[in-house]
Amino acid sequence: MPLIPKVGRKKISMRFLMGTITAVLWLGVALHLFPVWWMFTTSIKPSYEILKFPPTLWPAHPSLAAYRLFFYLSAGGWDVLQYPIKIYMKNSGIITAGIMLIQIPITALMAYALSKLYSPRWTRLLFLICIGTMLIPMQVSLIPRYLIMRHFPFPTRHIPNIPFTDIPFPHYNFLNSYWAVILPSIYSPFNLLLFKGFFDTVPPELINAARLDGASELGIFRRIILPMSKPVFAVVSYFTFSSAWNMFMWPLIVIQKNKLYPLSVMLYKFQNILQSQQVVPAEPETRRLLESGMSYNGLMAISIIESIPVFIMFVLLREQLMTGIKLRGFK
């Protein structure tokens, strides 16, 4: 509370100012919460109530039909509706977990090595190499990454032979698998900056002392650095989690099978079905589904389901996040 001094708080003008600020902030909170509230109430409204105007703030006959329909969807649906939503949930989960489990250790160890293990000259060069990718927008490497994923690690279909033999180099098509989504993001320059900024603040005496005691480098990292750097790990995992969970464009490109879509893509496809259904009559299966009460409430139900994990993540890491953001790498 630095802007308004404690002494003058009782004055009318100060009170007015304070009141205005408070009002603005609560208004902001209300505006922010409104879509969430809308999403939630819509998801438990029965379908005839959804398009009613004026809209009801709380459904007259709340029902969990939208949620139920999704968890027990049997085969025979159409497009993305073939599978129950838990499949997509699982996809999103696997992709996110994969990215977090691979990316965070790699990036942390890289940052630690950069920060503590190399001589200054090498550090500077390696650091520039690592950070350089951050300046280049992700869209530049979008298409090459797609091509590389198709015949990993070669960008074209023309694959050279191993010298002096007729056997082509081993290659693998990662498209239409979780790996296609996970692999390109196993390294993140942004997180590297965060980690390095934090590791730079660790006093080198600590590490030297541990070395004298005979600890191995990995041991030092695990025993000394890890316990110290909880906040920065919290920040990084929150960012990584939410960006991996919200990833849309990349999965849309590399995954063509309905069964493997993450939730965000599934939501988009489902939304398209709803939209097109207003214009042309959809397939009988879809129509049956829509007639049985699936419309915006279903959409909103998935939206809620999609939002929950991010929220849980935030609540779990909240304390650490608040204390942990010290973006020293930002310069």
Binding site: M1, I21, V29, H32, S264, L267, S307
Partner: peptide, 25 residues
């Protein structure tokens, strides 16, 4: 503006604000 509030209010507001909506939702 948020920094002007009392600590407890900051905490509540932050949580309310960070009730996240997944971007696609």
């Amino acid at each position: 503006f948020l920094m002007e509030m009392r600590k407890s209010i900051i905490r509540i507001m932050m949580i309310l604000w960070f009730i996240p909506v997944a971007s696609m939702a």
